[in-house]
Amino acid sequence: MHRNPRAVLRAAVAALLRPAAATAPSAASRQALPKATPAPTLAEWRPLPTAALPGSGSRRAFSSPAADYGKDVDEVNRKFAEAREEIEAAMESKETVYFNEEASVARDAANEALAAFDALLARLPPADADSLRRSMGLKMEQLKAELKQLED
């Protein structure tokens, strides 16, 4: 900290209160602002057609096919993460009295994630389904392998 904080504050206030001429830019460095256009009068104003408004007509006019399935992909990812956590919990409880119950919960969670992935693939157009299979297929195979490891 500075030795004399009041001196620092005084210097800051003095810098702020300098005359405007000392801090104002010169006339040569100022740029001319463009002229403002006048607002339209009420007689000149025309409403937009209702088809151009976002809330009217089809909602799909503003969404892409990839965005339509984004929530479904997020849901599959959430179920995948949940299934992995359940499998991990079951593996930690191996050789305890809780293992059978934990394994059952893990099996159900994994099967739910795999079913959601398969259902999403079935709903997608072939090109999008192939893309999703390439991006998430290994994760689902990993889930199947972990489930199989749990059974052993």
Rank of each mutant, 00 (worst) to 15 (best):
A52F: 11
A119F: 08
S29M: 08
A27E: 15
Q31P: 00
V73A: 12
R46L: 13
P34K: 05
A21P: 00
P126N: 06
L48W: 11
V105P: 02
P65H: 04
L42Y: 04
R3N: 14
S93H: 03
R59P: 14
F62Q: 12
P38H: 03
F117Y: 15
D108L: 12
R6G: 04
E82G: 07
L9V: 14
A12T: 11
D128F: 07
T23F: 01
E151L: 10
Y98Q: 09
A14R: 13
A103V: 03
R123E: 13
E146Y: 08
P54D: 04
A61L: 09
P19N: 12
A110G: 02
R6Y: 13
K148S: 14
E95N: 10
E101W: 01
E102C: 00
K71Y: 10
E86P: 00
L16N: 05
Q142V: 05
G137S: 08
A14L: 11
L147V: 02
N111K: 15
A28T: 00
L147D: 00
A89W: 03
D68K: 05
A115R: 10
E141T: 04
A127G: 04
R6P: 00
E101I: 02
V13T: 10
S26F: 08
Q142Y: 07
R59G: 15
L9I: 14
R18E: 15
A110L: 05
A113K: 01
L53K: 05
A36G: 07
P65V: 01
P5S: 06
P47Y: 11
E75S: 10
E92N: 12
A129H: 02
S56Y: 12
G57Y: 09
F99H: 08
P38Q: 10
S29G: 04
L143R: 05
K35S: 15
K79V: 05
K144H: 07
K35M: 13
R46I: 09
G57R: 08
K139I: 01
S58W: 05
K71P: 02
Q142A: 08
R123Y: 05
S64G: 07
A145Q: 10
T37M: 13
T50V: 15
R133V: 04
S26D: 15
F117S: 02
R10G: 02
D152G: 15
V105F: 12
R3P: 13
K139W: 03
E146S: 05
A103H: 00
A51T: 06
E85Q: 14
R84S: 13
G70I: 05
A109V: 06
A113H: 01
Y98E: 13
E141L: 11
Q31V: 12
A36M: 12
P54L: 06
S29T: 12
A52W: 12
E112D: 15
L17A: 11
T23N: 01
A12L: 14
D74K: 10
D130T: 09
F117H: 06
S58N: 10
A113W: 01
H2P: 03
T96M: 06
E141Q: 14
E88K: 11
R134Y: 08
D152N: 12
M140G: 03
K94M: 13
L120A: 02
S26P: 09
A110I: 03
P49N: 07
D68V: 09
V76W: 01
F99N: 02
E151R: 15
A39E: 10
S56M: 12
A39R: 02
D68M: 11
A115T: 09
L16C: 07
K144S: 10
K94R: 15
E44Q: 14
A61V: 06
D118R: 08
A28V: 00
G55K: 00
P126Y: 10
S104H: 11
L42A: 14
